[in-house]
Amino acid sequence: SSSSQHPFFLAGIPGLEHVHTWISIPFCSVFTISLLGNGSLLYVIKTDVSLHKPMFFFLSMLASIDLVLSLTTMPKTLSIFWFSAGEISLTFCLVQMFFLHSFSIMESAVLLAMAFDRYVAICHPLRYNAILTNSLVAKAGLVGLARAVVLMLPLPFLLRRLPFCSSHIIAHCFCEHMAVVRLACANTQFNNIYGIIVAFLVVVLDLSFIGLSYAKILRTVLSLASKEEQLKAFGTCVSHLCAILVFYTPVVLSSIIHRFGHRVAPYIHILLANAYLLFPPMMNPIIYGVKTKQIRERALHLFYRKSF
C-alpha cells in the first residue's frame, strides 16, 4: 500500500513539547549513566576471572540487554527533543519496535534465571556448582533469546500488512507496538489480542516463577538457626529483588493505566513507558555495584589505578 512509503513522525511527548529541551536533561543524564554503568559492569566482569561465576554471567547478560535497550531508543528520543527530528521510516520503526520489545522480554527471562540462581545458592548450596554449570547458564541465555525472538518476530509482519491512511504521527518517543497499532485504519483486534497474550505470558509466567523461587528461599531462610545466618542469606537476594522491582513496577503501572486510566493525561503514559526503558538500565549497575562487594572493590580498584 502507498501508506508504507510515507514516513512516520514520532511526536516525542505530546502535551509537553514546550518543555522537550528541559526534559532532555534528565533523559540525557540517565542515558549517560546507563552507558557508563553497564559498560563498566561488563568490563569489570570480563577482566576479573574471580567474577566468572553464574551470578555474574547473568549480570553481564542483564547489562548487555540494558545497553541494547538504551541504544535502541535514547539516541532517537534525544534527537526528537533537541532537533525535532521525529521523522522515521516504517522499516526503521518496525526494527526499533522489534529490538525494544524482544530485549524487554529477554530482560524478564534473565531476572527469572537470576531468581533460580539465588534459589539454588540458598536452598541447595552444596549442589550449586553441580547444578549451575556454565553450559546451563549459556542454555538459559539462549532459551531467553529464542523465546523473545519467537514471540516478537510476528509483530513487524502483522503491522506491515496494516494500512495507515490518516495520521502518520506516532504519539510517542519511540515505536512502541500499541502506539503504532493505533494509527492503522483497519481492524487491529488480532494485533491487540496478540500483544496482550504476549505481555500476559511473559510478565505473569515469569513473575509467578520468580515468586515461587522466593517462596522457597524464604522458607529455607526462616528455617536457619541464627538471625545472623538469616540476614546473610537474605542479603544475597537484596540486589536481585531491587532489580525486579525496578523492572516490573513501571510495566505493571503502565498496563494498569492503559486499561483503566482513561482520564490520565497521555503524557503520563509516555513518561511511564520511558521510565520502564530508562530506569532499569540506569539502576541495575548501581544496585549491583553498591550491593556486590566483589564488583564494588574491582570498580574502585580500576578507577584508582586509572587516576594515579
Rank of each mutant, 00 (worst) to 15 (best):
T21Q: 02
P26L: 04
A138T: 07
Q5L: 09
I131E: 02
R305V: 10
Q189H: 14
C28Y: 03
H168T: 12
C28Q: 02
P156H: 09
H124I: 01
Q230P: 05
Q96D: 05
L302Q: 11
I256Q: 10
F27L: 11
F247V: 07
S102Q: 15
F31N: 05
W22K: 01
A199L: 12
L151I: 09
S104Y: 08
L111G: 04
I217N: 08
H172M: 12
L62M: 13
T21I: 03
I196C: 14
S239E: 01
R118D: 07
R118N: 07
L222V: 03
I210C: 09
V30P: 08
S2T: 03
F8W: 06
Y194I: 10
I196P: 05
P26W: 11
I45A: 06
S89H: 05
L78N: 03
I286G: 06
L16Q: 10
N129P: 01
S307G: 00
T32C: 14
A140I: 14
V221Y: 10
A11H: 03
I270H: 04
L151W: 12
T188F: 06
L278W: 12
F99I: 11
N284P: 00
G86Y: 02
V203E: 14
R263L: 08
R127A: 10
I257H: 06
H124E: 13
I196D: 12
D206E: 12
L207N: 14
G86K: 00
Y267R: 01
E297T: 07
I131Y: 02
I45F: 05
S70R: 10
Y248G: 01
L62Y: 07
T292Y: 06
L112P: 11
I256K: 00
A265E: 14
L10Q: 04
Q5N: 12
E107M: 14
N191G: 09
V110C: 09
L67K: 10
L67F: 15
P54E: 00
L112T: 15
T77W: 02
H124R: 15
A130V: 03
V202S: 09
L145I: 13
I13P: 10
T21K: 03
P75M: 14
L69R: 11
L142M: 15
L207M: 13
H177C: 02
L111W: 12
L201N: 13
Y267G: 02
Y43K: 08
P125H: 02
G195F: 14
F9N: 04
S34R: 08
V204R: 08
H168G: 07
R219T: 13
L224V: 00
S208C: 11
L155R: 12
A215P: 02
L278I: 07
R118G: 10
N192P: 03
K216Y: 00
D206P: 00
I170W: 05
E297W: 01
L78E: 08
M283K: 10
N134F: 13
F200G: 13
I13N: 09
S1Q: 15
K291W: 05
T292D: 08
A299C: 08
L272C: 13
F27E: 09
H172Y: 05
M74P: 02
L94I: 01
F247L: 05
